[in-house]
Nucleic acid binder design. Structure first.
Length: 432
DNA sequence: AAGAACCTCAACCGCTGCTCT
DNA sequence: GAGAGCAGCGGTTGAGGTTCT
């Protein structure tokens, strides 16, 4: 986290993954490190004391703009942080990128994070040339780069190492290899990568992860809602997904494991593996066969076929599916191999504004701010604490009394309309 | 044109195991 | 043998790009 101050506008940029813009007039009394909400910054390694001191010195008030994931509001003594996962528009993304490119920011002695610059790569390459790919931490101790040894090593291994197939998609052969080896070794990406020249463990991991997500989505999407590829996904399937020929792959031998929910069962650690015939992935795209295949593979068809609403149990979850889709002839069990590693369906959107307010209703939520306790709730304008307090004043609208009733956009409406007009790309440093 | 959904990939984090003192 | 430091690994996150609505 880095703090950037614009000398003219006195805007503060708290540089994390995304900037938070702070500007405006100072309230009476200046800032004090008082509110538990400062923890928000402390957790991000912001030098809070310095920040407060500087803010008081410059007489700037703090208002948090929505320029990324963090959204909040500030009052003279405290800051209210909310988090809102909002996808940036293209315009916002461009602005952000422009800001990042044009901003030179004070390192304040902190470790640099984020994307690598060409100059940094060059420094790293020079170091490796001279000393070999080792002593990563010495790069920082020698003052060559403000990066951790870990970060340097990662950069070298994943991007700078010679003979890497950067930007080259996995061939069908490579995909086959990964699938096969994953079945053999489990998620030992580094080990798998040793069989793939020019590929890193990160490459393999990313490939596998993408593939799993894709498969999971295909499996979880209701068959009846799959018109002749309304889902644009399979139109964009990578070639290998469509062309991977059948191949031999190990199979879990334990019949009891096939429907077990333990994640341990996901990897083929069993010593007894027998080769099975794999079904080409395009089969998975067929909604009429997929669910039946799952049922067949998990051995649940028999259990459920008498029920009115057929259920396809898949690993951890139970998925109601369309009646007719389970009446299709099942595929042979080998298809199971491909489903073993699919994670349970993701939870609902993790951290949107509604979640925030749900959490605000939970007394334990504020424990994360360190000073815990419901007594602190009064500091938060969106939480009804029973008493009147000053909290109500900061809200100014009756609907705010019920956090659960407050919509995300209503929260945004709390900001002055012109506040967001303030967000403009920083001028280039030369103009400062 | 704008937004949503999805994909890819770079980079970070936490943990583990190894090596050295 | 204990502890510190480091390298490596696997999981996760988030930015940016692409495609579709």
């Amino acid at each position: 986290m880095t703090i950037v101050v614009h000398p003219r506008s006195k805007e503060w940029y708290f540089w994390h993954k995304t900037p938070i813009v702070c500007s405006g007039e100072r309230g009476r009394g200046g800032y004090r490190k008082q509110s538990a909400s400062w923890r928000f910054f402390e957790d991000r390694n912001v030098k809070v004391e310095l920040m407060i001191e500087e803010m008081n010195k410059l007489s700037v008030n703090l208002a948090l703009h929505a320029c990324g994931d963090e959204v909040g509001r500030a009052e003279p003594d405290r800051i209210f942080i909310n988090r809102r996962r909002r996808r940036r528009t293209k315009v916002e993304s461009k602005k952000l990128m422009e800001m990042r490119r044009s901003t030179t920011y004070d390192e304040m002695g902190e470790i640099k994070k984020g994307p690598w610059k060409t100059e940094e790569d060059e420094v790293l390459l020079r170091h490796v040339k001279k000393y070999g790919p080792r002593d990563w931490s010495s790069i920082r101790s020698k003052g060559l780069l403000q990066r951790t040894g870990k970060s340097c090593r990662l950069r070298w291994v994943n991007k700078l190492r010679p003979d890497l197939k950067n930007g080259v998609k996995f061939s069908a052969e490579e995909e086959r290899t990964v699938i096969e080896l994953q079945g053999q070794y489990g998620n030992k990406w580094a080990r798998i990568a040793t069989h793939l020249p020019g590929r890193t463990d990160n490459d393999v991991k990313n490939f596998w992860s993408s593939r799993q997500k894709r498969l999971a989505r295909v499996l979880l999407s209701p068959p009846s809602h799959q018109p002749p590829q309304k889902s644009h996904k399979s139109l964009r399937e990578p070639p290998a997904l469509q062309k991977v020929p059948p191949f031999e792959a190990p199979k879990h031998s334990s019949s009891t494991e096939s429907s077990v929910t333990s994640p341990k069962a996901l990897s083929c650690s069993s010593s007894y593996c027998e080769p099975i015939q794999m079904v080409p992935l395009p089969e998975l795209m067929n909604p009429t066969t997929t669910n039946a295949a799952i049922e067949s593979a998990t051995g649940l068809l028999d259990q459920n076929q008498n029920q009115n609403q057929p259920i396809c149990q898949f690993e951890y979850t139970t998925i109601p599916i369309e009646e007719n889709s389970c009446n299709q002839p099942p595929l042979p069990p080998p298809l199971l191999q491909d489903f073993h590693h699919i994670p349970p369906p993701p939870p609902p959107l993790t951290f949107d504004t509604q979640d925030i307010f749900n959490q605000l209703g939970d007394p334990n939520f504020f424990a994360v701010f360190g000073q815990g306790g419901t007594a602190d709730l009064s500091q938060f304008p969106f939480v009804q604490t029973g008493g009147e307090g000053e909290s109500g004043g900061s809200c100014g609208r009756e609907e705010c009394n019920d956090p659960l009733m407050m919509e995300a956009d209503a929260f945004m409406d709390e900001f002055p309309m012109d506040m967001f007009d303030h967000i403009e790309p920083l001028p280039s440093p030369s103009e400062w």
